[in-house]
């Protein structure tokens, strides 16, 4: 495993830690899109089906279980925890996320590497992950007040896929990997969706101002 991949995974893990910190210690999920979080549960459930069919490493299995467990836990907190659920910005979380699921299903049925259950679901999970942040970005744009933890969470989540792109470049050049259009293009789209957010996040950080996205 190369450094970019490890840093990518750690950034992803850290983003979840930051979100759990907000939920568990601040007891708030204000500004967090439940729709995006539900999409992540679907992404992990469909991608990590291979937990039952193929073993890669202890690291791989452990990380998959952590991503599955934490994503389900976060949705549980946002839906059912008696304090946390009251902080959910429901009225602003308006993105039609079913549309993203439908779009990803159609795309995965049309464009995949092999037509079997695991492969199509894996492809679906990549397409859905690429766009899963959209409800969250829309919610941020509607939020007047983006707290630090929420801003950091979204930043880390975006940085993770950007680091994965470097990992793919590295594997292609150094490990003789072939072209892998499906994850690469999905990853590029996913990272590109954050471009605007990255710009305002870094700007607010440089100017030591509170993060605010233009409406």
């Amino acid at each position: 495993m190369n450094l970019f991949r490890l840093l990518g995974d750690m950034t992803h893990l850290l983003s979840i830690v930051v979100l759990l910190l907000k939920i568990r210690t601040v007891k708030s999920c204000a500004g967090i899109s439940l729709k995006t979080q539900e999409l992540y549960v679907i992404v992990f459930l469909t991608r990590y089906l291979d937990l039952f069919t193929k073993y890669y490493s202890v690291y791989n299995t452990a990380m998959k279980l952590v991503f599955l467990g934490t994503s389900i836990g976060i949705v549980w907190y946002m839906r059912y925890h008696k304090v946390v659920k009251q902080t959910y910005s429901k009225d602003e979380d308006t993105f039609k996320h079913y549309f993203l699921i439908l779009l990803s299903i159609i795309l995965a049925l049309l464009i995949h590497r092999a037509f079997d259950v695991i492969e199509v679901l894996w492809t679906f999970s990549l397409y859905l992950e690429a766009v899963a942040i959209l409800p969250q970005l829309v919610l941020l744009q509607k939020s007047r007040n983006i707290d630090t933890l929420t801003g950091d969470y979204v930043f880390l989540l975006g940085a993770y896929r950007a680091l994965y792109i470097l990992n793919w470049v590295y594997r292609f050049l150094m490990e003789n990997h072939k072209f892998r259009w499906i994850p690469w293009i999905s990853g590029l789209v996913q990272t590109a969706l954050y471009a605007d957010f990255f710009y305002y996040y870094i700007k607010s950080w440089k100017n030591r101002e509170k993060l605010k996205l233009p409406a």
Binding site: R5, D50, A114, K178
Partner: peptide, 10 residues
């Protein structure tokens, strides 16, 4: 050549 590369990622 169905090597599992990329699938070993998260």
């Amino acid at each position: 050549d169905e090597e599992p590369e990329v699938h070993d990622e998260l």
